[in-house]
Design a protein around this nucleic acid. Structure first.
Lengths: 201, 201
DNA sequence: ACCCGACTTGACTGGTCAGTCAAGTGGTTT
DNA sequence: AAACCACTTGACTGACCAGTCAAGTCGGGT
């Protein structure tokens, strides 16, 4: 197969990083190619357009991060502890990015979704899909927590959307303030919201 | 004064609308000028750069919308009803935009803030400022509600940030899904979150 | 040994971008 | 009536944009 290389994978990773740290509109195909050390022609051999690359890059990023979410939401630990771990994961991830780049980078799915929801239907749909997949994790924990009488919620599906909205909102607020402060309220707010009867250490 | 006109005001309004419906990066100075029927030279007579125009446009938009927020949060009505009205206002506004343009447009301040927080400090700071001003309204209602024993919260400042995060998150979710559905949970979620003891009609 | 086709190379296109500029225009001030 | 200056006009610049293309290069299948 000619000259196989890691060009495609490199493009996906570089594109995701650049778009997350900046924005879709502010990152050019030339920039992505340069950073990935790939020629323009190769780019368009793999992807029909910049938008298609973005969709593929975000799907690939999910694929890579999914095992970590599976671990966080492992049925091995109690449902409330899963949520607690998830809050910690969000904080740690934002902190790591903020220290590395000097800016709070926010939720990658939400950022590209908000930027392009009204302009590019393919990207909007992918962002929606990724957000919904995240909500499913929260929902599973809440369903189990409800069964165990650990929380006072009605519909776990609705409660999961509420909980996820808190996370989205606080991460967004942190990005706009460029300050991780608001994220310290994430766990207590969520626990209050679902009426958690006991919070693990 | 030569040929005074409404050019400046027109630019501010057109810029705000275009950026809200699309995004900062997707809207060009040429587009703004064309829609506002203003020449490029006039644009740069009033504003040193596209970013400066955006900052001015968002400040101007706040100035125009502030009386409506003052009305919603009028001390004439009970604190909980103010929050209820505010939720309704958010929903109505999003619905109106969605019907007019076929897309859920989201929160204008949050959208531009998320898009440019890591790239343009002046715009990030303005978005932060506008968000904080909104939070102050919520905080004032919560402070009064607490004094009247209508809610069970600790620090009204913290509670206001929590409440606002729910709003930000749900509006964001609605934009990414291009569906107003999530917003129907806004009021009940907020009332649950602050432990509202009574909800007005 | 040969060819096929996945992949690479880098120059190229036409259009658009933010921002500049020099020459006006006309109301106001003196 | 003359000078001033806020504002207008529209052509212009050079950089950059997404995307194209034709000519390769080389591993694998036959």
């Amino acid at each position: 197969m000619g000259k196989p290389s890691d060009a495609q994978e490199k493009l996906l990773q570089v594109a995701f990083d650049l778009i997350w740290n900046n924005s879709y509109g502010a990152v050019s195909v030339d920039q992505i190619c340069e950073r990935a050390r790939v020629n323009k022609g190769s780019f368009y051999h793999f992807f029909p357009s910049k938008a298609d690359l973005a969709v593929a890059a975000y799907e690939e990023h999910w694929r890579e991060k999914q095992p970590e979410l599976d671990r966080i939401f492992s049925p091995q630990v109690s449902p409330l502890e899963r949520l607690e771990r998830w809050c910690q994961y969000i904080y740690d991830r934002q902190k790591q990015k903020a220290e590395k780049y000097g800016h709070v980078c926010g939720c990658p799915y939400a950022s590209i979704g908000v930027e392009l929801a009204t302009q590019d239907e393919k990207i909007r749909a992918k962002a929606e899909e990724l957000v919904e997949r995240n909500i499913r994790y929260v929902e599973s924990a809440l369903t189990e927590a409800q069964r165990q009488g650990l929380v006072s919620i009605d519909d776990p599906k609705v409660a999961a959307e509420r909980v996820y909205a808190v996370a989205l909102g606080m991460v967004l607020h942190a990005k706009v303030r460029n300050d991780l402060g608001p994220l310290r309220q994430l766990q207590p707010t969520i626990m209050d919201l679902i009426g958690a009867k006991a919070v693990a250490a």
